[in-house]
Structures are given as C-alpha cells and as structure tokens.
C-alpha cells in the first residue's frame, strides 16, 4: 500500500485527486489538507509515502511546505500547478514529478507509476533485494488481428509504433494500421523490451525506427520515426528510451 496525502487549498481540486486515486487498489489516502501549515503538521505526524501538493496556495506555497520539512521527513512529492516554471525548483525537494492543471489522466497515472517504482527503494525495510516480476521466457513476435471478418497475423518487426486507441491498440506498419484488442500496458509486458519501448502512457515505439530525439522545453521529448512520423515521449519514459536507443546503436 502506498500511503498518500493531498494538499490543495481548493476542495474541488483535492477531491479531483482523491477521485482519480480511488481507481487504484494499491493506494491509501491518509490525509487531506487545505493549507500549508496543517499539511506540514500532518505530514510530520503521518509520514505518508507520497504527497500530491499544490504549488500556489495562500500564505505557504507547496514548495515552502516541502522546504520546511527536513530531508528525512519529506515524502515523494508530486506537484500540482498551473504553470510549469514553478515546478522546476521543486526537484530540489524530493519532487518526483509534476502535474499541470487541468490534470491529464495519463500523466496522473505516469506520476503514480514513478512513485510506485521508487517506493521500494525509499522504504527503509526494503533492504532486501527487490524482486522484479519474472520476465516471460519468450517475447511475443506476432499479433493476431481481425481485418473485417478474417483473422490476419502481423509480425512484430513489421510494426513501427503502437498507439492506444480507446480499448484497442493501433499497430502502425509501413502501409497499414491494424487494431488489436489489447491494452498498451499488457503489450508493454509481452514485447521484447530491447526492441519495443514505451515512450508515453499511450505510445510504444520500435526502438530501431527512431531517427531523432529532440528534448522539449517542458522536459518531454519529441521523437521522429524513420517514416517521418513525429511521436511525443513523456519525461517519465525518456531514460529507459535512451538506454534502449544506446544499446541498439541508434540516434
């Protein structure tokens, strides 16, 4: 269980975070605070793992709250802000991500993923080795798709990138796009990670199809695939993408 606190001076904004968190089974909201001072006291008393904290609050800003906490008291912070320039300073204070208002569900999930990944390293009792889920013995190399009423098979190496499209995943090839009834999260687990990398909550690219990577001012990046398609990569995934690109010898 991830223990979470929410700090925002607007009740509606707090309930927005709480409602989104309700969709996740592994989180527990331990406190909600409407101002900096009570948040400071609450965080010290309850020591949550993660705090969603609004940057712009009267009297005491979210950054002030984080700055007032001693390093060992600071939870992993996910900042909520209307302006991204405020968020950058917060990375000094154990912030792991920031969410811009209005909050995007995909970004929200990404930020929570980051916290979830970092949690075992953060908890002191987790000195024991962290068990990663066993990778499947073999990676999926082809997809079964429906084209009209017939079933077709698409080879993984004919797919350049994959995009989430509602309940489906759109497999983009050189000529055609096929729809596969599969979530991107599951595809990310069954595809060979040295060939396919997730670059966004809703996008997976084939690593050897990436031609250029250009950082953006909001810490995301824009990829250009060899077929001329631009694809956004969000900051959460850039590190793993760079690793995969280096091992492939691309870019």
């Amino acid at each position: 269980m991830m223990r979470i606190a929410i700090v925002d001076d607007e009740p509606l904004a707090r309930s927005g975070v709480a409602t989104r968190l309700a969709a996740y089974a592994d989180v527990d909201i331990v406190g909600e605070y409407g101002d900096g001072a009570s948040a400071l006291a609450g965080i010290r008393a309850l020591a949550p793992d993660v705090v969603f904290v609004d940057v712009q609050m009267p009297d005491m800003s979210g950054i002030d709250v984080l700055a007032a906490l001693a390093p060992h008291e600071r939870p992993m912070a996910i900042l909520l802000t209307a302006h991204d320039q405020f968020a950058v300073r917060a990375f000094e204070f154990n912030a792991i991500d920031y969410l811009l208002k209005p909050v995007d569900d995909d970004r929200f999930a990404e930020a929570l993923d980051r916290a979830r990944t970092a949690l075992p390293y953060r908890r002191r009792e987790a000195n024991a080795p962290i068990d990663a889920p066993d990778p499947p013995k073999t990676w999926q190399t082809r997809f079964e798709v429906r084209v009209g009423r017939r079933v077709a098979f698409v080879d993984a190496h004919d797919v350049t990138w994959i995009e989430a499209d509602g309940d489906y995943a759109a497999l983009h090839g050189d000529e055609h796009t096929y729809l596969l009834r599969e979530s991107l999260a599951r595809l990310a687990l069954v595809l060979d990670p040295s060939k396919f990398v997730r670059v966004h909550r809703s996008t997976i690219v084939r690593v050897d199809c990436v031609a250029d990577l250009q950082p953006l001012s909001n810490r995301d990046a824009l990829l250009r695939l060899k077929d001329g398609t631009p694809v956004r990569a969000s900051r959460t995934y850039i590190e793993s993408l760079l690793c995969a690109l280096r091992s492939v010898g691309g870019v």
Partner: peptide
Amino acid sequence: NRDAQQTIARLGEFLR
C-alpha cells in the same frame, strides 16, 4: 467522462 477529461487536459496543454 474519460474522453471529456482527456479533451480538457489537451485543451489546457494547448492553451498553456
């Protein structure tokens, strides 16, 4: 709802 939320977030991003 989900589409509405997504569109609001995109609009926010665009306006920003």
